[in-house]
């Protein structure tokens, strides 16, 4: 078993991470908060290489929610990148978006979803969408590579135009489910 098999990452040929990056640029996103996920690794590299984006690596995802509130106070657009387990760390902090009507788009790579191998990912992965919705987040899912760009654009538009928390869940089916040779 390869170490890289422990995490799900898109194939090198997949171009949807680049499409997401182009959308973040088109929508003038200046602050990118994240806790790394293998599924976002290519997008993170693109953001790090961009001089106009401030990439902030967090110790826990809820920090990113608070940071998005501060960014908006100061007139900058932000986004939070995380894996589905990180959504659980954000729950109470998402109150900020509802209370203040703050744009908070989140791009979530799913685990514990389609063809998961790691039992520890399943409880939060299965709860990700209900938990976000319980906190007033508008959620859409992309389970095919060709859906990702449209879903992410809707998530950005909805957040910035209507002032709320929004999320695209990028299904494990598109990212690549790892099975450690047990399939």
């Amino acid at each position: 078993m390869q170490r890289s098999d422990l995490e799900s990452a898109p194939a090198a040929s997949a171009d949807w991470p680049d499409q997401i990056f182009d959308l973040l640029k088109a929508y003038n996103v200046k602050q990118v908060a994240l806790v790394p996920d293998a599924g976002h690794s290519r997008l993170i590299k693109r953001c790090l290489a961009d001089n106009e984006m401030r990439v902030v690596t967090l110790t826990t995802e809820e920090e990113g929610v608070a940071m998005m509130a501060g960014a908006w106070l100061g007139g900058q657009r932000s986004v939070l990148l995380m894996q589905s387990s990180g959504v659980g760390n954000c729950i109470n902090m998402l109150s900020l978006a509802t209370l203040h009507r703050t744009p908070m788009p989140m791009l979530v790579t799913m685990r514990g979803d389609f063809g998961e191998f790691n039992p520890a990912q399943v409880p939060m992965g299965q709860a990700t969408q209900p938990v976000l919705e319980a906190m007033g987040t508008l959620v859409n899912r992309a389970d095919k590579p060709e859906d990702i760009s449209a879903c992410v654009e809707a998530t950005l538009k909805f957040a910035y135009n209507t002032y709320r928390a929004t999320a695209t869940l990028i299904g494990q089916r598109v990212i690549g489910a790892k099975t450690f040779g047990k399939d």
């Binding site: 200046k30 602050q31 401030r54 902030v56 809820e62 920090e63 990113g64 929610v65 608070a66 940071m67 998005m68 509130a69 501060g70 960014a71 908006w72 106070l73 100061g74 007139g75 900058q76 932000s78 109470n92 902090m93 109150s95 900020l96 209370l99």
Partner: peptide
């Protein structure tokens, strides 16, 4: 003034987001 009514644990990070957005202030 931006007084918080909740978001316990988030005050410093709200400060960071604002400080990055408004580097002269």
């Amino acid at each position: 003034n931006f007084p918080l009514w909740g978001a316990m644990g988030g005050a410093a990070m709200i400060g960071l987001g604002l400080a990055i957005a408004q580097p002269e202030r």
